[in-house]
Design a protein around this nucleic acid. Structure first.
Lengths: 143, 143
DNA sequence: TAAATTTGGGACAAATTAGTCTTAATTTAA
DNA sequence: TTAAATTAAGACTAATTTGTCCCAAATTTA
């Protein structure tokens, strides 16, 4: 099951990486991220621009340039990134893609899909970049 | 979030439709299914062939031909269809697409994703076509 | 047997997603 | 002020998924 697009996956990993470096006032270059995480540089640059436009991060050109989180990593949640890149309706979609599927006119799998989506959304809503950065730095989790 | 390919979605809806008609020994024509559910006829024909090859259904050409479930609808579970069309590893994939992600070397979101996948898999495993066909026939659920 | 109906199968086209490349603009620092 | 470093932006290519079309093969029925 692939729930997320590559663009979203790359950005999640990238921002976890940035958060795990925990550099308060330094830009992290896209080249470094791309090298460390083995992600296409140009693709990453492009998707970062979207996060940029939505005010999640800030970029700077020239030597020592790069990107930086605009808020503290404890205040950025996975759901923020997902909403920007996949759309605000990411957790609203019918499993069978039926338009108008909902409580009033449910598809045959509406109820259990609603539960599954609810669980996932909750996790994305309560998991911050800081939380994951700690897990990366203290232990055995890898990007 | 789109968890399933169109091919899978179409087949799920199609087989729910067939099951809901509950015709024991009659073939249901692909043309009828395609008309009723507004799915491309040729696309449906093609994906049915895959289910065919895996022994989930049987087809017959000529007048009054069509497809028929090879087992009773109470013995066909959603997971059977998903496994054939999406692959047996459908529920094994890392949310971040990292190869080798698992208990020993988890990615930062491994644990909660494991739970979400587990819930979904359980539902697919215990939900039969008959179960859904009943919901369709008795009530307000639509395809 | 001939005509009508229906699936089989492959080639092809369109749409979407993913990835590459080139050039421009900006910034730093020697 | 010039060179180097770095992101911005858009064109282009590749891969994958989705959808269309045509004709062949099989089956039924008149």
């Amino acid at each position: 099951m692939r729930a997320l697009s590559k663009a979203t996956i790359y950005c999640l990993r990238a921002l976890m990486y940035v958060a795990s470096k925990n550099e308060q006032n330094n830009y992290v270059s896209i080249g470094e991220i791309s090298d460390e995480l083995d992600i296409s540089f140009h693709f990453l640059t492009k998707t970062f621009q979207t996060l940029n436009q939505h005010g999640l991060l800030e970029s700077h050109r020239g030597p020592h340039g790069g990107i930086i989180l605009k808020k503290a990593s404890k205040d950025i949640y996975l759901i923020d990134i997902v909403h920007i890149l996949e759309g605000a309706d990411f957790f609203d979609k019918c499993l069978l893609g039926l338009p108008g599927c909902g409580e009033r006119e449910p598809c045959p799998v509406h109820n259990f899909w609603k539960n599954v989506k609810g669980n996932l959304q909750l996790e994305f809503r309560k998991t911050s970049l800081q939380h994951l950065a700690k897990a990366i730095n203290t232990g055995k989790m890898r990007l």
